[in-house]
Write a protein that binds this DNA or RNA. Structure first.
Length: 476
DNA sequence: ATGTCC
């Protein structure tokens, strides 16, 4: 009876699409002929069917599932045979998987234009670091799971040597006034006006998450999310922040829309995949017509999740500013994992998806983080048309989470952090600085996309304690 | 990235 324990989530981990294929697989496994199959063997078999569905088309038990993995011109929306041309920044160190995913996205009949940022790596559907402009449609997996995930920086009127003199106090503030991980939330969540938005009454999936949204407000979640104190160095006199060149104490946060955004992404991805069946390699790129009821709902829910993520950062910075007893001189905030209505250079209206890519329209400010032991950069967009007015959202991974856990040791990471003078609360091996690309190289590949106004060098970092042996994927 | 669900 071991098979009865197999869940949809197990199938997601071996790359099964949400929806019919998963439902079919779970139903077929209920067949009495398969009752003796243990969980491992069942997963191995399902993987084989997905990899070579043609071998199972005559198998009476598995035929219906196998069909799900074979292109069906009668059912599937057809991809263009031609891959539309698109720019790749820093192509030499972009992995093949990310390139292949972007190629597929450039074959969608709704695609107008695209670009791949120098921190790109493989994700679900659109690669992380992928920018895709489409015609009157929105792709839930082109936005990603953590809708509206963002960076927020506060610059304080405090000299940077405060970090050296008050290291343990600042560390304690992070410990006391931030919440990380799946379960940790504030006992006294802020009653933010966002919770009164009509979407919480009008959209079913959003309504079901209102209580969770209230409880999770101001919490940071897990994965690559962080809150950190560090040194802001302003190098450019003309910096749009009214800051004199020099060094300041800074607070940088990276997190998103928590359970609310995840539920919206999961729900509308399922809807899109059932309404817009695509050939297997493109299945996760299913879109919703923007004029459809579901498309309008997703658009409203996505915007709410973005505003919620912003409210969370506001709360994080308010709590820490109060605890520090200082008001910020300047703030910079920018989001990725989102879709915007924009006008392309040729005048066409487009829905521009930036999955792990930073908006870089002319004069638009943003922060591109490096790693715990490398600076991030305060940037101003140059409005470059070839990148669809976008830039990278960080350094990007050099090692997958699994590779990092296999190749790095706790001792090595501890030494590396100590050598760089970094204080860390939490943080797993999969988030070790060595798992990330060299931010200086990444920045060198996007000189045409952004101007650098200053830097942020982390000193005291808090992250989730990390997943230990748990398998994770993606990361935006 | 989330919640533990087809």
């Amino acid at each position: 009876m071991a098979t009865s324990k197999l869940r949809g989530n197990d199938l997601r981990k071996i790359g099964f699409p949400e929806g019919r294929a998963t439902t079919l697989a779970l139903n077929i496994l209920e067949d009495r002929q398969l009752k003796t199959l243990d969980k491992g063997s069942a997963l191995a078999l399902l993987q084989k069917i997905k990899a070579d569905p043609y071998a199972y088309l005559r198998d009476s038990l598995w035929r219906e599932l196998a069909k799900e993995f074979v292109p069906d011109p009668k059912r599937d929306v057809t991809l263009n045979s031609e891959i539309k041309d698109y720019r790749r920044y820093g192509e030499a160190f972009i992995e093949d998987g990310a390139r292949r995913q972007m190629d597929t996205a450039m074959q969608l009949p709704v695609t107008l234009d695209g670009a791949l940022m120098p921190d790109a790596h493989q994700g679900y559907g659109l690669p992380i670091g992928g920018v895709l402009a489409v015609d009157n449609a929105v792709i839930p997996y082109g936005v990603g799971m953590d809708i509206g995930c963002r960076m927020a920086l506060s610059v304080f009127p405090v000299p940077s040597h405060y970090l050296d003199q008050h290291t343990q106090e600042l560390k304690k503030l992070l410990h006391n006034h931030t919440r990380f991980g799946g379960k940790e939330v504030f006992k006294n969540p802020t009653d933010d006006p966002i919770l009164e938005r009509p979407e919480f009454r009008e959209i079913a999936v959003v309504r079901g998450k209102r209580d969770a949204a209230y409880n999770q407000l101001g919490s940071s979640g897990s994965g690559n999310h962080f809150v950190e104190w560090g040194v802001v160095e302003i190098t450019d006199d003309d910096n749009d922040l009214d800051l004199a060149p020099g060094q300041y104490l800074g607070l940088l946060s990276h997190s998103g829309s928590r359970g609310l955004g995840a539920a919206i992404a999961q729900h509308y991805t399922k809807v899109a995949m059932s309404k817009c069946p695509l050939p297997p390699e493109a299945r996760y790129l299913a879109w919703l017509d923007l004029d459809s009821q579901e498309g309008q709902e997703y658009w409203a829910a996505m915007n709410l999740a973005g505003d919620y993520a912003s409210a969370c950062h506001r709360d994080i910075h308010r709590r820490l500013s109060q605890a520090l007893g200082e008001k910020p001189l300047a703030k910079v905030e920018n989001h990725h994992n989102f879709a915007w209505k924009e006008t392309l250079p040729d005048g066409r209206e487009a829905i521009v998806h930036r999955k792990g890519a930073t908006p870089a329209g002319k004069g638009v400010l943003g922060v591109i983080p490096g790693s715990m032991t490398a600076p991030g950069f305060i940037v101003r967009g140059r409005g470059e048309r070839d990148s669809i007015q976008s830039a990278s959202h960080g350094a990007g991974r050099r090692m997958s989470r699994t590779q990092a856990k296999q190749n790095l040791s706790e001792g090595d990471v501890r030494r590396h952090l100590r050598d760089h003078g970094i204080e860390l609360i939490g943080g797993g091996l999969d988030e070790a600085p060595m798992a990330y690309k060299d931010i200086h190289q990444v920045m060198a590949h996007q000189r045409d996309l952004v101007d650098v106004l200053g830097s942020f060098t982390p000193r005291i970092v808090r992250m989730d304690a990390g997943g230990g042996g748990k398998s994770r994927y993606g990361g935006e």
